[in-house]
Every structure is written in C-alpha cells, then in structure tokens.
Design a protein around this nucleic acid. Structure first.
Lengths: 358, 358
DNA sequence: TTGAAAGCGCTAACAA
DNA sequence: TTGTTAGCGCTTTCAA
C-alpha cells in the first residue's frame, strides 16, 4: 500500500498512526505519551499531545485492550432492577471512584437463579472485564465454587457471612443495626415487638434473611421472650404489588394473639406501605404502634419514618476502592468490611402508652 | 510454533482457535456458528457448540469489536449523579431493551459544562461505542454543532425543543403536563397560583426552564393575569441543601404581596421539602395551600403528594428502541416523540376555601 | 458450506 | 529516549 492510498484510506477513522505521522514520531511513542509514561521527552510529549488534539484523536479501547490484555472495564452485577434505590446507589458510588481512574463500568442485572448461574458460569473465561463487583446475592455452595474459579478480582457488596469465593467484600452490619433498633424500642417501653417481612424462604436476593435472624438475636439479648418478639411474614411466595403485601401483613399483625406495640420492617418501602394500610384501619402510628424501617431511602425522609440507615453509595465507593487496590496487586489489609448502620429517629416511633389509647 | 508449544501455551485463555481445533473446523466456521449464521450445517453447528460449551468458551468482545468495527456497546451520558431517580430510571429502561440484544451499556455522568463539552468533543472520533443516549442537558449552539459532527447514532432524552444534532429524541410534554396541573388548580377555585423553582438562569441541566415557561403559558390560557400567576425562585445561584433552599423559597412564598393559594413545584423533592418547611410555620397543606409536585417519584407516593407523573424507565426503553432501529439502518417514522404526563391526585391539593381558614 | 489469510488499532518486548 | 516488530483474538473477504 503506497502513501497516497494510506492517506485517502484514512477517511474512516483517526488512528494512532495518523497521530504518529502528524507528530513525526513512532506509534509506540504516541502510545507511551498517551499513557503518561515518564520515558518521553517533554518536547516530544508536547508535539504528540498537540497532534492528538488537532486530530481529535481518541484511543480505541478495543485495540488497546486486545493488545494489552487489560480491558479497563469493570463488571457490575446486581440482582433486580438497575434503577432500584440500592443498585443505583452502589453503581453511582463505584462510578465516582472508577471514573477518575479511567475505568468504564458495565452494569448487568439478573432476575433469577438460573440467569445468575449462567452469568457466573461465564465469568471464569470471560475476558471482557478486569474485575467484577457483585451485589446483593444470596450465595449458594455451587455459586461460591464457581466464583472461586474466577481469575479476575471479585468483590461482593452486601453479601455478608458468605465471603468465600470473593477477594473482598463490603456490607452492612445487620446485627448491630437491628440491635440498635431493638434497644430503642425496649427503651421506649415496648414489651411486645415483631419483625415484619416478605416471605422468608431462601431467595436469590440477599436481604431479609439475615435481618430477621439479627432481630431475633437482638431481641433475645434485650431480654424479650420468644412470645414477645415474633416474626410476621407473608405465608405464600407469589410476587405481588407492595400495597397488597402490606395489607396481607397488616391482617396478620392486627390479628396476632398478643398484638405487638412496635415493629421493625424489612425495608422502608414496605414500612410505609404498612403504615398506610394501618392508617386505613384507624391504627395510628406512632400512638398505637411504633414502626422502624430499614434503608433510609429518600422516601423515609418524606414519610418521616424512623429507620435504620445504610448507605449504598458509600458501599459502592468502598467496593470500587478495593477493586482498584486488588488490580494494583496489593493485598488488602482488611478485605471484608462491615459498615455500622445507625438509627435515624423520626416520627413513627414513640414511648409506649403515651398516645391516646383506643 | 509446533503443536506441543501451542497446546502448552494455551494456559492463559481459551480462544476461538481452541474451539476450532476441538471441533475440527476452522476459526471462521466457529465465528459463523457463534453469530448464528445460517450458512452452517446443522451437524457442524452441533459440534462447534459442543466444543465451545465444553471449553467454557466466551468470545472476546475486544477482539470481535476490533475486527468487525462494531463495539456492541452503547454510551449513556447523563448529567448529575448516576443514581438519581431520573438517571437511574432511564438507565434501567435502556438496559431492559439492550440486554436481550446483547448490547452493553457504558454509563457516564458529567457535572459541569466544561466536562460536558470535553465529552461531546471526543464523540466524533470515538470508536468505543456504536451509539449514544444523551440525557437531560440544556443544549447550546456549539454543543449542537458538535453533536451534528458525531457519526454514530445519538438519541436525546428529555431535551425537547432542541433536537438539532440528534438523530432521534424522547421527552415529556411539559406544556401538556403543566396545563393539566394549572387547569386542576383553576377548577379547585384557586385564583392566585405560583410556580416554585430553583434559580432560573440557564443551567447545564435541562429541567425547570421549560416547565416554568409552560406554567406561565398555561396560566395565561386559563385566564390568570400576570399578577395572579407568578414565579417564585431562588435569587442566587449557590448550590445548597434542599432544606435550605426550601426555607428560602418558603420565605418568598409567604411574604408575597398577594400570597398564592396553590403552587406548582419544579420537582417532588423540592415540593416535599417546601411542605415540611411550611408545616414548621404552621401553614397547612392542603388547607392553607395546595401543592403539586413534578415526577411522581417513590417519595411522592410516600408523602401523599399530588404530582405530575413522568416515567424515566419508559423514556429509557423508548430511547433504546430507537437506537436499535437506527443501528439497523432504519429511518424512524417519528424520530422525535413526546410523552404526555398525567396528574396523579393525592392529598396535597384541595378545593380552595374549604379547610378551616387562619 | 467451509477454509485460508489478511488485517482491525493498539501495546510491549527488544534493539538501537 | 525512541523506533521496529510481532502479535492480541477475532471477523471477513475471497477461493475452494
């Protein structure tokens, strides 16, 4: 191919070769300059940058990746909708950390066991990401085995107690969180309490399971008998609108042999739906029943809901920071970290027996 | 390189060559099979798929992209946090559509004009995505010029009225939305109304500007005089916590020469913050003041806020669908679409003069 | 229907 | 410090 041809053929794309020719250096030098190598003269660097600038040159990630073996891409795998409060928060936090380091994020979401298994099975041989952040899954033995076979760094988010297979993990300390909530209720004089949640059977998504256990454990520590600290849960497993679920749970709550005077609810969303349903039955919160949610999403503030706060954005930042360390070959001093949730006091909790009673 | 070497050298990755050898066919045939070409015998296809399966083979996106020129990646560029209600929703909707088509999404967020300009300037020469979805920006002339120079398909989300430079766009019809809200207030007997928003100067983010104008226009149509339909806005441009902004706006609202009896607020978030501030001043909503928000985010439901609903997830789906069409070389029958928002009635609006008055 | 071979645009030894 | 060169793993003509 002669020069005339090369020049006319370059109609499609500006390549590193164009920059090299423009700057009068080799492709290797352009590459070195663009990657901030110190082994380039200031003068050369100047010329290269100028040439790149004037040609509006952008590196082809694909070509770079293929040649270097690094993709500069991080996989973010989560369960359920990408736009959920939790997932979107983690994604945002991770982006904040990765963006300045010039890593792209590839978000992916799976909605069922089968999909998840397939995805994880493809991980060991996939060369489309340098690392993976995996969020909010209930782990299983086979899943952990597959994860162990993955050669790239993997960090788990919100998968506490199941850190096998992960190089690192961040999560929240459900036990401490529930403990604080239960202690608050005890201090407010509530003698009968309950934990309200959706179906309890093992699910793909990590959430209520551990919190439920944490609630029972905290209650025991605080001196509640098993009759005075109960679980109120949906007794079937069909997905349904949250309002319907709340109504179903409200029935169980109100019909309890010994009705609790305070409840902790799995999530803010469910807590608010429950409160609405109760208010429809003229049960007042907090006069007749104290309610504590979980998450401190924006809706908790809007509904003046007392809740246990977790911060998915910070979880995402921490996970990303660990990924970066791992990618640099560092061994983490503390690979598995747990954040302590705090209780945010608002208007749905109150001292027992001090509202007008029914 | 002899065969012994090749086999021992394959320790790092399973490549298409390994699959080809295993199946006893050429690389080309493996490639064709994996891409669902019809020009492969059923028998051959069978053998190839089996080989791929047994080796846990996954295509290297990078190598595919480099060779084919298609990246199978879509850029999602938005303003502000990736985790915001709107951005996360659009991302989720786009993901729903792209995922089954095997396109990855690369999310990116910019927070300032300068950053945005840089990003868009790199678009014309960037070969790291096949198309771009660009969300919620206030367009400028130079920006539109740059966009026009981009060779890949670009579709705008929530950038109505500024469709130059975009191949397609989806957005919401702010005029219809505000019109419905204003008509509602008129029907409820409110004679003095206002639109409450953050600073009005031209900003990077598209939002209040058009809604403000739509409000004024609707008010005029409904017969409000310019004294009876006003704008209440922050008079400085410093970013600040929403509660502080709400307090600032509450002062202006309460101190109005003729106090409005109903307001439309730029967003749900601000509406709720405003209501809280007003309640602190013992102004009751809706008895003393009717409030209509904008968005119908989850918080609107939690706070029982009457609002104008828009659906970012659907916007994302529509944008993605258009991208797909464009990528297939189709010309869209209707490239610029506008969704009609509806008013969701809740507890913050009421007939004027029917609560206990001060 | 299948195979051979020439790149896609870049990086990373190795040499100079 | 810079240039030369040999691939990275795939796709895609072109021939068979």
């Amino acid at each position: 191919m002669n020069n005339e041809n090369r020049e006319s053929a370059s109609s499609s794309h500006v390549t590193i070769a164009d920059v090299a020719r423009e700057a009068g250096v080799s492709q290797a030098t352009v590459s070195r300059t663009l990657h901030g190598s110190s082994k380039v003269t200031a003068a050369t660097r100047q010329r290269v940058l100028q040439a790149a600038e004037s040609l509006h040159f952008t590196l082809s990630q694909n070509a770079s990746s293929l040649a270097s073996g690094r993709t500069n891409r991080i996989l973010f795998l989560c369960s359920g909708p990408l736009g959920s409060w939790f997932n979107a928060g983690v994604l945002q936090g991770a982006y904040e950390v990765f963006q300045p380091e010039r890593y792209d994020i590839t978000p992916a979401s799976v909605t069922g066991r089968h999909e998840l298994d397939n995805y994880v099975a493809s991980l060991p041989t996939m060369r489309n990401a340098d690392a993976a952040i995996i969020s909010s899954f209930q782990m299983t033995e086979p899943l952990e085995d597959q994860l162990s076979a993955v050669s790239m760094p993997t960090v788990g988010v919100d998968i506490p107690g199941h850190t096998r297979g992960f190089d690192a993990s961040v999560g929240i300390d459900n036990l401490t969180g529930m403990d604080r909530a239960v202690r608050l209720l005890r201090a407010l004089g509530h003698d009968r309490i309950a934990f309200v949640c959706d179906r309890t059977e093992e699910d793909m998504v990590y959430n209520a399971t551990e919190r439920r256990q944490a609630f029972l454990q905290s209650a025991e520590t605080c001196g509640y008998s098993t009759d005075d600290a109960t679980i109120i849960t949906a007794n079937d497993v069909n997905p349904r609108p949250i309002a319907e679920l709340a109504a179903h749970l409200a029935v169980q709550l109100l019909a309890s042999p010994v009705r609790p005077t305070a409840v902790c609810v799995e999530t803010d969303l469910l807590a608010i739906a429950l409160i609405k349903e109760l208010s429809r039955q003229h049960i007042r919160v907090p006069e007749d029943l104290s309610v504590i949610g979980f998450d401190d999403a924006a809706i908790a503030d809007a509904a003046e809901l007392t809740t246990i706060r977790q911060d998915p954005v910070q979880l995402g930042r921490d996970a990303a920071t660990m990924v970066l360390s791992l990618l640099q070959g560092h061994t983490l001093e503390k690979p598995h970290i747990l954040m302590e949730p705090i209780v945010v006091l608002r208007n749905t909790t109150a001292r027992y027996g001090h509202g007008d009673q029914d």
